[in-house]
Design a protein around this nucleic acid. Structure first.
Lengths: 212, 212
DNA sequence: TTTTATCTCACGTAAAAGGGTGATTTTTAG
DNA sequence: CTAAAAATCACCCTTTTACGTGAGATAAAA
């Protein structure tokens, strides 16, 4: 038999850490080599230890699991990171995968599913839980349908949402009011709305700013 | 020594259940008499068993922990329910307490805090974790500070948010445009904003419609 | 290099919003 | 019953949006 898989758990919930430990304690092929309740502690861990697989919570007190994942993989590209989240929201799944996570598990995963994810990911493949996969598909589908706006349009959009008038935006961006007006018109046209309220409504409904 | 405290854990996350069990297994004064991963299973539990304290997750697949708490307490008023949540959001804390929960614990609680909560609540007092208490105070504070708008103003507000113009609103409510304009001005004045975007921003930031 | 997209600006018009003030009627609450 | 609050409407004026059209400059992609 080969060496056990070295697992690091990064989660700020003591209950979750204990839960995973408890679920995996009878598994010889997986060995929990450490736990960390913050991004900082996680980074410290890697200065003196190594791991094969990391269970990564998305909500950490100091840094998001998404950013921490990207950061760790830059330093240690061989790491296999599996996201661990309460949420099925497609945006999270997408961002974790984009950050380089090899797996996505929900916190209501069964012992069986946890083990499966570890094995699949350790073998070099990806494992995304069915619910997360579905949310991701939905997300990607939606994403393709959403209109694309330019960098400048996004800047203007954000300032509009903040309640600035065209003239205030113009002042802030050092451009003419007419230009701001043009961007605004283009936004209305692209997003298929015809006033400020509808514009904001569109952004909120589609969590549009998350895509940009 | 007296009988151990009978604890039921209601949470749809296997990891959390395992975690709590693991944290409490060496405690003689607390005995976990059951676990339930849904509201339905929780209700079934009580048809054949009893418990002193219930750890209640807020997000359950079939029914919210808030509603389940109210429902259980109607049937079994002697129960002591402690909410268990990832979230510090004041709204949740408030609603759980309103539903009759005697405690509020965050899922990153330490073993020590969990035990303390159990003991305090079992003795008949309330235990709310410091962070949750703070969020609750903030919530109640905020609630008192939020301006009060009238029924009609609320109707107009909603239509504004939906993107209708004053004239469209007037048509819909069978009143004059000037009247709609008056309501709009009063809204701006009461909520201390001066354009549509800021109005919507205020509503979103404060989840204002939830209070009305 | 040439096309294409983006960003920029201008002008004009009509509609809507933003703001102030005042007044009547209806409802609600003390 | 009476005072206060809410809902209604009117008018004025200024600013901002909304919509159309056109066009030059620049940067990116084919």
């Amino acid at each position: 038999m080969c060496d056990p898989i070295k697992l690091l758990i990064v989660d700020d919930h003591q209950m979750i850490i204990e839960g995973i430990q408890s679920l995996l304690e009878d598994q010889a092929k997986v060995k929990i080599v450490g736990t960390a309740t913050s991004a900082k502690l996680c980074e410290q861990f890697f200065t003196t230890h190594t791991a094969d697989i990391v269970f990564m919570d998305i909500n950490l007190p100091d840094l998001s699991g998404i950013d921490l994942t990207a950061l760790l993989l830059k330093k240690y590209p061989a790491l296999h990171i599996i996201a661990l989240s309460t949420f099925t929201q497609g945006t999270y799944v997408r961002k974790m995968i984009e950050s380089g996570a090899k797996g996505y598990l929900l916190k209501n995963a069964s012992k069986f599913e946890i083990l499966k994810a570890i094995e699949v990911v350790h073998s070099g493949q990806k494992y995304i839980s069915p619910e997360a996969q579905e949310a991701l598909n939905y997300e990607l589908n939606l994403q393709n349908k959403l209109p694309i706006i330019t960098k400048r349009e996004k800047e203007v959009l954000i300032l509009i949402i903040e309640g600035l008038s065209n003239s205030q935006i113009a002042e802030k961006l050092f451009i003419s009011i007419d230009t701001v007006d043009s961007h605004r018109k283009n936004l209305y046209s692209k997003l298929n709305v015809n006033n400020t309220a509808m514009l904001i409504g569109f952004v909120n409904e589609n969590k549009y700013l998350d895509y940009l």
